[in-house]
Protein backbone atom coordinates (compact mmCIF):
# COMPACT_ATOMS: atom_id res chain seq x y z
CA UNK A 1 0.00 0.00 0.00
CA UNK A 2 2.59 2.43 1.12
CA UNK A 3 5.07 1.20 -1.45
CA UNK A 4 2.56 1.64 -4.24
CA UNK A 5 1.87 5.17 -3.12
CA UNK A 6 5.44 6.21 -2.92
CA UNK A 7 6.27 6.97 -6.58
CA UNK A 8 3.16 9.10 -6.93
CA UNK A 9 4.07 11.10 -3.87
CA UNK A 10 7.53 11.56 -5.26
CA UNK A 11 6.26 12.88 -8.57
CA UNK A 12 3.97 15.23 -6.79
CA UNK A 13 6.83 16.40 -4.63
CA UNK A 14 8.71 17.49 -7.73
CA UNK A 15 6.32 20.43 -7.85
CA UNK A 16 7.96 21.68 -4.72
CA UNK A 17 11.10 22.29 -6.74
CA UNK A 18 9.30 25.05 -8.59
CA UNK A 19 9.38 27.63 -5.84
CA UNK A 20 12.91 26.50 -5.07
CA UNK A 21 13.79 27.27 -8.66
CA UNK A 22 12.22 30.68 -8.35
CA UNK A 23 14.26 31.39 -5.28
CA UNK A 24 17.37 30.24 -7.04
CA UNK A 25 16.85 32.50 -10.02
CA UNK A 26 15.51 35.51 -8.17
CA UNK A 27 17.81 35.58 -5.21
CA UNK A 28 20.93 33.58 -5.74
CA UNK A 29 21.44 34.64 -9.32
CA UNK A 30 20.65 38.29 -8.73
CA UNK A 31 22.77 38.27 -5.62
CA UNK A 32 25.56 36.75 -7.66
CA UNK A 33 25.14 39.52 -10.17
CA UNK A 34 25.42 42.15 -7.47
CA UNK A 35 28.46 40.48 -5.98
CA UNK A 36 29.95 40.29 -9.45
CA UNK A 37 29.31 43.98 -10.11
CA UNK A 38 30.84 44.95 -6.80
CA UNK A 39 34.20 43.42 -7.61
CA UNK A 40 34.33 44.27 -11.32
CA UNK A 41 36.27 47.28 -12.44
CA UNK A 42 37.38 48.45 -15.85
CA UNK A 43 40.60 46.46 -15.41
CA UNK A 44 38.99 43.21 -14.24
CA UNK A 45 38.68 42.07 -10.61
CA UNK A 46 39.13 44.78 -8.05
CA UNK A 47 38.29 45.60 -4.45
CA UNK A 48 38.51 49.34 -5.02
CA UNK A 49 34.78 49.91 -4.35
CA UNK A 50 35.04 48.23 -0.97
CA UNK A 51 38.20 50.13 -0.15
CA UNK A 52 36.56 53.41 -1.11
CA UNK A 53 33.41 52.67 0.85
CA UNK A 54 35.19 51.75 4.05
CA UNK A 55 37.96 54.35 3.84
CA UNK A 56 35.98 57.41 2.76
CA UNK A 57 34.97 59.13 6.03
CA UNK A 58 31.54 60.17 4.77
CA UNK A 59 30.57 56.66 3.75
CA UNK A 60 32.10 55.06 6.82
CA UNK A 61 30.09 57.57 8.82
CA UNK A 62 26.90 56.55 7.03
CA UNK A 63 27.64 52.93 7.86
CA UNK A 64 28.33 53.83 11.48
CA UNK A 65 25.14 55.86 11.64
CA UNK A 66 23.16 52.98 10.16
CA UNK A 67 24.42 50.61 12.81
CA UNK A 68 23.82 53.23 15.48
CA UNK A 69 20.26 53.88 14.33
CA UNK A 70 19.51 50.16 14.18
CA UNK A 71 20.87 49.80 17.71
CA UNK A 72 18.77 52.68 18.99
CA UNK A 73 15.64 51.36 17.28
CA UNK A 74 16.25 47.93 18.77
CA UNK A 75 16.69 49.34 22.24
CA UNK A 76 13.62 51.58 22.16
CA UNK A 77 11.53 48.81 20.62
CA UNK A 78 12.58 46.39 23.34
CA UNK A 79 11.75 48.86 26.11
CA UNK A 80 8.32 49.52 24.64
CA UNK A 81 7.50 45.96 23.63
CA UNK A 82 8.52 44.16 26.81
CA UNK A 83 5.79 45.46 29.14
CA UNK A 84 3.10 45.00 26.50
CA UNK A 85 4.19 41.44 25.73
CA UNK A 86 4.23 40.71 29.42
CA UNK A 87 0.73 42.06 29.76
CA UNK A 88 -0.41 39.98 26.79
CA UNK A 89 0.89 36.82 28.42
CA UNK A 90 -0.86 37.60 31.69
CA UNK A 91 -4.36 38.50 30.58
CA UNK A 92 -7.12 36.09 29.64
CA UNK A 93 -7.09 34.27 26.35
CA UNK A 94 -9.71 36.46 24.73
CA UNK A 95 -8.03 39.72 25.69
CA UNK A 96 -4.71 38.32 24.52
CA UNK A 97 -6.23 37.51 21.14
CA UNK A 98 -7.61 41.04 20.76
CA UNK A 99 -4.21 42.48 21.67
CA UNK A 100 -2.44 40.18 19.22
CA UNK A 101 -4.74 41.27 16.42
CA UNK A 102 -4.10 44.90 17.34
CA UNK A 103 -0.37 44.25 17.18
CA UNK A 104 -0.55 42.46 13.84
CA UNK A 105 -3.01 44.90 12.27
CA UNK A 106 -0.36 47.29 10.88
CA UNK A 107 0.97 44.44 8.74
CA UNK A 108 -2.17 44.72 6.65
CA UNK A 109 -1.08 48.04 5.20
CA UNK A 110 2.21 48.74 3.52
CA UNK A 111 5.10 50.36 5.30
CA UNK A 112 4.90 53.16 2.77
CA UNK A 113 1.32 54.04 3.70
CA UNK A 114 2.10 53.91 7.40
CA UNK A 115 5.10 56.15 6.95
CA UNK A 116 3.04 58.68 5.05
CA UNK A 117 0.55 58.57 7.90
CA UNK A 118 3.32 59.73 10.21
CA UNK A 119 4.14 62.51 7.78
CA UNK A 120 0.51 63.59 7.88
CA UNK A 121 0.62 63.60 11.66
CA UNK A 122 3.99 65.25 12.18
CA UNK A 123 4.30 67.44 9.10
CA UNK A 124 4.61 71.19 9.10
CA UNK A 125 0.87 71.44 8.59
CA UNK A 126 0.12 68.13 10.28
CA UNK A 127 -2.20 67.32 13.17
CA UNK A 128 0.30 67.99 15.90
CA UNK A 129 1.44 71.39 14.68
CA UNK A 130 -2.12 72.37 13.80
CA UNK A 131 -3.45 71.66 17.28
CA UNK A 132 -0.51 73.04 19.18
CA UNK A 133 -0.78 76.20 17.08
CA UNK A 134 -4.47 76.52 17.71
CA UNK A 135 -4.00 76.01 21.42
CA UNK A 136 -1.44 78.79 21.33
CA UNK A 137 1.34 76.60 22.63
CA UNK A 138 3.53 77.39 19.65
CA UNK A 139 3.73 80.31 17.23
CA UNK A 140 5.91 78.73 14.58
CA UNK A 141 5.29 75.14 13.44
CA UNK A 142 7.74 72.71 14.99
CA UNK A 143 9.91 70.78 12.61
CA UNK A 144 9.02 67.31 13.75
CA UNK A 145 10.05 65.59 10.56
CA UNK A 146 13.29 65.10 8.67
CA UNK A 147 15.50 64.66 11.68
CA UNK A 148 17.05 61.65 13.45
CA UNK A 149 14.27 61.53 16.05
CA UNK A 150 11.65 61.24 13.33
CA UNK A 151 13.60 58.35 11.79
CA UNK A 152 13.83 56.68 15.18
CA UNK A 153 10.13 57.16 15.79
CA UNK A 154 9.07 55.89 12.38
CA UNK A 155 11.34 52.87 12.47
CA UNK A 156 10.40 51.95 16.03
CA UNK A 157 6.77 52.08 15.03
CA UNK A 158 7.32 49.70 12.14
CA UNK A 159 9.53 47.31 14.12
CA UNK A 160 7.39 47.12 17.26
CA UNK A 161 5.17 44.21 16.13
CA UNK A 162 8.18 42.01 15.34
CA UNK A 163 9.56 42.52 18.82
CA UNK A 164 6.21 42.08 20.54
CA UNK A 165 5.40 38.86 18.74
CA UNK A 166 8.83 37.38 19.41
CA UNK A 167 8.74 38.29 23.10
CA UNK A 168 5.16 37.19 23.48
CA UNK A 169 5.83 33.72 22.15
CA UNK A 170 8.54 33.21 24.74
CA UNK A 171 6.57 34.70 27.60
CA UNK A 172 3.51 32.64 26.83
CA UNK A 173 5.61 29.53 27.31
CA UNK A 174 6.47 30.40 30.91
CA UNK A 175 4.71 28.22 33.46
CA UNK A 176 2.52 30.42 35.67
CA UNK A 177 3.29 28.13 38.58
CA UNK A 178 6.91 29.30 38.47
CA UNK A 179 5.77 32.81 39.33
CA UNK A 180 3.51 31.51 42.05
CA UNK A 181 6.35 29.42 43.40
CA UNK A 182 8.62 32.46 43.49
CA UNK A 183 5.99 34.40 45.42
CA UNK A 184 5.33 31.54 47.76
CA UNK A 185 9.03 31.28 48.50
CA UNK A 186 9.13 34.91 49.57
CA UNK A 187 9.86 36.92 46.45
CA UNK A 188 7.81 40.07 45.88
CA UNK A 189 6.79 41.28 42.42
CA UNK A 190 10.06 43.07 41.73
CA UNK A 191 12.21 40.21 42.96
CA UNK A 192 10.14 37.69 41.01
CA UNK A 193 10.70 39.75 37.90
CA UNK A 194 14.48 39.97 38.28
CA UNK A 195 15.10 36.45 39.46
CA UNK A 196 12.57 34.49 37.42
CA UNK A 197 10.77 36.38 34.67
CA UNK A 198 13.74 38.21 33.18
CA UNK A 199 16.10 35.21 33.03
CA UNK A 200 13.38 33.06 31.49
CA UNK A 201 12.57 35.67 28.84
CA UNK A 202 16.21 36.30 27.98
CA UNK A 203 16.12 34.05 24.89
CA UNK A 204 13.16 36.07 23.62
CA UNK A 205 14.95 39.34 24.29
CA UNK A 206 17.99 38.10 22.38
CA UNK A 207 16.18 36.80 19.34
CA UNK A 208 13.69 39.69 19.21
CA UNK A 209 16.50 42.25 19.42
CA UNK A 210 18.54 40.58 16.71
CA UNK A 211 15.55 40.31 14.42
CA UNK A 212 14.72 44.00 14.80
CA UNK A 213 18.36 45.01 14.52
CA UNK A 214 18.84 43.10 11.29
CA UNK A 215 15.63 44.40 9.76
CA UNK A 216 16.59 47.94 10.76
CA UNK A 217 20.03 47.69 9.17
CA UNK A 218 18.65 47.41 5.67
CA UNK A 219 15.55 49.49 6.21
CA UNK A 220 14.90 51.89 3.36
CA UNK A 221 11.46 53.48 3.09
CA UNK A 222 10.96 55.03 6.50
CA UNK A 223 14.42 56.57 6.93
CA UNK A 224 14.29 57.82 3.36
CA UNK A 225 10.90 59.47 3.82
CA UNK A 226 11.14 60.70 7.38
CA UNK A 227 14.82 61.50 7.58
CA UNK A 228 16.47 64.76 6.58
CA UNK A 229 19.34 65.14 4.14
CA UNK A 230 21.76 64.51 7.02
CA UNK A 231 20.06 61.29 8.02
CA UNK A 232 21.19 59.14 5.14
CA UNK A 233 21.46 55.47 5.97
CA UNK A 234 23.26 52.85 3.93
CA UNK A 235 20.19 51.59 2.11
CA UNK A 236 19.35 55.11 0.95
CA UNK A 237 22.88 55.77 -0.19
CA UNK A 238 22.91 52.51 -2.14
CA UNK A 239 19.74 53.54 -3.89
CA UNK A 240 21.18 56.96 -4.76
CA UNK A 241 24.47 55.58 -6.01
CA UNK A 242 22.71 53.24 -8.36
CA UNK A 243 19.75 55.32 -9.42
CA UNK A 244 21.19 58.83 -9.50
CA UNK A 245 24.90 58.45 -10.18
CA UNK A 246 24.65 55.10 -11.94
CA UNK A 247 27.66 53.94 -9.94
CA UNK A 248 26.68 50.27 -9.93
CA UNK A 249 29.96 48.90 -8.69
CA UNK A 250 30.09 51.17 -5.66
CA UNK A 251 26.42 50.72 -4.78
CA UNK A 252 26.78 46.98 -5.01
CA UNK A 253 29.86 47.00 -2.80
CA UNK A 254 27.92 48.87 -0.14
CA UNK A 255 25.03 46.47 -0.45
CA UNK A 256 27.38 43.50 -0.10
CA UNK A 257 29.02 45.01 2.98
CA UNK A 258 25.64 45.49 4.59
CA UNK A 259 24.74 41.93 3.62
CA UNK A 260 27.92 40.67 5.28
CA UNK A 261 27.02 42.46 8.52
CA UNK A 262 23.49 41.09 8.29
CA UNK A 263 24.68 37.55 7.67
CA UNK A 264 26.99 37.78 10.63
CA UNK A 265 24.01 38.91 12.66
CA UNK A 266 21.92 36.04 11.35
CA UNK A 267 24.51 33.51 12.40
CA UNK A 268 24.27 34.97 15.88
CA UNK A 269 20.50 35.06 15.64
CA UNK A 270 20.22 31.39 14.79
CA UNK A 271 22.60 30.45 17.53
CA UNK A 272 20.49 32.34 20.04
CA UNK A 273 17.10 31.46 18.60
CA UNK A 274 18.16 27.83 18.50
CA UNK A 275 19.22 28.13 22.09
CA UNK A 276 15.85 29.64 22.97
CA UNK A 277 13.94 26.88 21.24
CA UNK A 278 16.03 24.29 23.00
CA UNK A 279 15.31 25.81 26.36
CA UNK A 280 11.56 26.00 25.92
CA UNK A 281 11.41 22.49 24.46
CA UNK A 282 13.19 21.05 27.45
CA UNK A 283 10.87 22.79 29.84
CA UNK A 284 7.94 21.00 28.34
Amino acid sequence: MQLADQPRVRQWQLLLLLPAGFLLVLFIVSLGAIANLSVNGPQGLTLEHYARFLSTPVYAYVLYKTVRTATAVTFVTLILAYPLSYLMSCVGRRTARVLTIAVVLPFFTSVMVRTFAWIVILGRRGFVNEYLGRLGVIDVPLSLLYNPSAVLLGMTYVMLPYMILTLHSVMRGIDRNLLRAAQNLGAGSVETFWRVVLPLTLPGIMSGSLLVFLLSLGFFITPALMGGPADLLVATVVQREIELTMNWGFGCAMAMTLLAITLLGFVLYYRLAGFGRLLSAEER
Binding site: D175, R180, A182, N184, L185, G186, P199, L279
Partner: peptide, 27 residues
Protein backbone atom coordinates in the same frame (compact mmCIF):
# COMPACT_ATOMS: atom_id res chain seq x y z
CA UNK B 1 1.62 35.18 49.30
CA UNK B 2 5.27 36.21 49.69
CA UNK B 3 4.63 37.27 53.28
CA UNK B 4 2.63 34.28 54.42
CA UNK B 5 5.62 32.12 55.24
CA UNK B 6 4.04 28.88 54.17
CA UNK B 7 5.89 26.56 51.82
CA UNK B 8 4.22 25.02 48.84
CA UNK B 9 5.00 22.02 46.69
CA UNK B 10 3.29 22.20 43.32
CA UNK B 11 1.95 19.26 41.40
CA UNK B 12 4.44 19.86 38.58
CA UNK B 13 7.05 20.93 41.19
CA UNK B 14 7.53 24.36 39.53
CA UNK B 15 11.30 24.14 39.82
CA UNK B 16 13.00 27.12 38.20
CA UNK B 17 14.36 25.69 34.94
CA UNK B 18 17.11 28.31 34.65
CA UNK B 19 18.56 27.62 38.09
CA UNK B 20 20.57 24.67 39.34
CA UNK B 21 19.30 22.39 42.08
CA UNK B 22 21.40 24.31 44.59
CA UNK B 23 20.13 27.69 43.35
CA UNK B 24 16.56 26.43 43.44
CA UNK B 25 16.83 25.39 47.06
CA UNK B 26 18.75 28.57 47.90
CA UNK B 27 16.08 30.79 46.30
Amino acid sequence: PQHREVGMVFQNYALFPHLTVFENVAF
